[in-house]
Nucleic acid binder design. Structure first.
Length: 579
RNA sequence: GCUGGGUUCGUAUAACGGUUAGUACUCAAGAUUCUCAAUCUUGCAAUAGGAGUUCGAUUCUCCUACCCAGUACCA
């Protein structure tokens, strides 16, 4: 009589899903899939005050991006299901739409003596709290204090009847029994015991929006939806006794789900849980997707920062869980196979942004050159680079390709050219967008326009309102497409005697008539420098400076072969005349 | 304050009560190269403290310290 595994992720649509929430969803998903069970989404929107437009859609989109696809609660269009069907028998899955369901359960509790009506106003309770605090104590609505407060336990029945009939000014509270030890079991933490005397009479039904609180709605829905395990955040551990008591009060002990409380994700430095602030301060996202709140503030997301969802999920999975061995790289399928709740860490895990990047780097390297090329092309296009699939089409448009497949002047490149750049630079990249920082000079020429009083940005026709000095060379190289020269490298490597040698190398390349292959050109340049007994390091670095704008970067042969004879010579000539 | 949870290198973690306490990230050094990165090699670095149980404790028990959560008509 094994029970079908059914777990749920029950977010509250009060804002974007935090990465800790994604982890909770992920662990639920992994657990369900491993057991061949169901992963259900339920929206816990019983607090109308905190509802944030767009949050629900965000949550579903974020989970979808991560590959965490619900079996129930959300349809294939990403909408929360509102009407029951074979696949979604428990609809609606939004608690605000389940309002009629809860009321009778609350009344059942009262009828059986497990709950009572309370008529105390917010002001009265606030006053009681303030008085207790002034006396150095904490006010608790419990079995002691409830007898001196206004509720259906203390008021005459007739008065209770009258208040219920004439006003809607009441809440329902759980009648916590006195001096009872609640014995609980947590799948991660083991056995826990709590005495009910330390607990209070929690509100189960709110006057404010005439809806149940989390505690009631949660228990009722988990029961109705036949949830077998509740895997949720540690912040719920203190209310676990209440939830146990509620299952008991309803007489649902036999089908009560098993519980697992996950520790929190902590900030990288210092103490406390990970918050949006930490991300802003330390420069990493805390949300899976970019989020713009109703006030217009935008928070960065892992997706927009260039993380692969597989890397994000893998990283998250390893934060607080391990497979029991040294493996660190897992596909979703492998995670499903390896996951186990008893390997989940009890203590909170500090998030490490560096490790997150490492994961992305690993996944980037696992991508094929073709996959990365497909992802890089849009990035290049944002920088004004044209990538074409068929060289013939571009030839009719006037492109003049060099041997590698690039037309530097017209900023047109073949897909093969891009792929070859990807192939030999991928080990330097962490994100797809890094390729531009690493190899922009294989697409555009370096130039330090600022040094000549020429502002970066598109050139403007003379006479225009915001006319800037026009660099004559801009006819050849569009300055909006340039990589800058690194000033300190210029100071260090651009010495007159070396420039002379570099210029000669430029002439040598321009008139090179051997076989134009990557290896051939590379060794020819080296032989030429060696033959002249020039200092290899100094010349090569100056050469790179002229070609790439920086003394550090890709190999000379890699650059020269790709940009071709003409551009190599042109860049050297430009640097020699202007730096 | 009270209640509950937690504590192995800086971080994430491994270690049926018996290991020189392992691995990964970070960091440092070396190798390599025309530079940088990558790569390879090496290194730095931990059982919070104290009792107890035991032949033997990172592991079990208790105490202390510290950290976290909850203490709402929020979830």
């Amino acid at each position: 009589m094994e029970r079908r595994t059914r777990v749920r992720f029950a977010p509250s649509p009060t804002g974007p899903l935090h990465m800790g929430g994604v982890r909770t969803a992920l662990y639920n998903y992994l657990y369900a899939k491993q057991k061949g069970g169901d992963f259900i989404i339920r929206i816990e929107d019983t607090d109308s005050n905190r509802f944030v437009p767009g949050a629900e859609e965000y949550i579903i989109e974020a989970l979808t991006w991560c590959g965490i696809i619900p079996d129930e609660g959300v349809d294939s269009n990403g909408k929360v299901v509102e009407t029951p069907s074979a696949r979604h028998p428990h609809a609606p899955y939004r608690q605000s739409q389940r309002k009629p369901i809860y009321r009778k359960y609350a009344e059942q509790l009262i009828a059986n003596g497990y709950a009572y009506y309370a008529f105390d106003s917010a002001e009265e309770l606030g006053k009681a709290r303030a008085e207790a605090e002034a006396a150095g104590q904490t006010f608790i609505y419990n079995q002691v204090s409830r007898m001196s407060l206004r509720n259906s336990l203390t008021l005459p029945p007739a008065e209770v009847e009258r208040l219920l009939a004439e006003t809607s000014d009441w809440t329902i509270r759980f009648k916590m029994p006195s001096d009872t030890v609640v014995k609980m079991d947590d799948l991660i933490r083991g056995h826990i015991e709590v005495n009910t005397d330390t607990l209070d009479d929690k509100v189960l039904w709110k006057r404010a929006d005439e809806l149940p609180t989390y505690h009631l709605a949660n228990i009722v829905d988990d029961h109705l939806m036949e949830i077998s395990e509740v895997i949720r955040g540690e912040e719920w551990l203190p209310s676990l006794p209440l939830h146990y008591m509620l299952y008991k009060a309803f007489g649902w002990e036999d089908t009560m789900p098993r519980f697992a409380h996950l520790s929190l994700l902590l900030k990288p430095i210092g103490n406390g849980k990970l918050s949006k602030r930490d991300g802003d301060k330390m420069g990493f996202p805390v949300f899976p997707l970019r989020w713009t709140n109703p006030e217009g503030e935008t928070s960065r997301g892992y997706r927009e920062d260039g993380y692969f969802p597989e890397a994000f999920v893998n990283m998250l999975a390893m934060l607080g869980w391990n497979p029991g061995d040294d493996r660190e790289l897992f596909t979703m399928e492998e995670l499903i196979g390896a996951f186990s709740l008893d390997k989940v860490q009890k203590a909170g895990a500090k998030f490490n942004p560096e490790k997150a990047k490492w994961y992305n780097r690993e996944y980037l390297r696992m991508k094929t050159d073709k996959e990365l090329t497909d992802l890089l092309v849009p990035v290049l296009e944002e920088h004004g680079i044209n990538v074409i699939d068929c060289p013939k089409c571009a030839l009719t448009a006037g492109a003049e390709f060099n041997v590698a497949g690039g037309d530097l002047r017209n900023h047109i490149f073949t897909r093969d050219y891009v792929q070859s750049v990807v192939a030999f630079t991928k080990e330097r990249a962490t994100f797809v967008q890094d390729f531009w920082a690493i190899a922009s000079y294989l697409f555009v020429a370096p130039a330090d326009f600022e040094a000549f009083g020429i502002k970066a940005g598109p050139q403007v026709a003379p006479g225009a309102a915001d006319a800037r000095p026009v660099d004559p060379r801009a006819k050849v190289y569009d300055d909006s497409l340039t990589a800058p020269f690194i000033a300190k490298d210029v100071d260090k490597f651009w010495k007159p005697e070396i420039v002379e040698m570099v210029s000669k190398v430029g002439e040598f390349v321009k008139t090179f008539d051997g076989n134009w292959t990557l290896e051939g050109v590379g060794s020819a340049i080296e032989e030429y420098i060696k033959g002249n007994e020039w200092p290899m390091g100094k010349v090569m670095n100056a050469l790179r400076l002229a070609l790439a704008g920086s003394a550090s970067g890709l190999g000379i042969a890699d650059i020269v072969w790709r940009i071709g004879k003409i551009d190599t010579a042109a860049r050297i000539a430009f640097a020699a005349s202007r730096l």
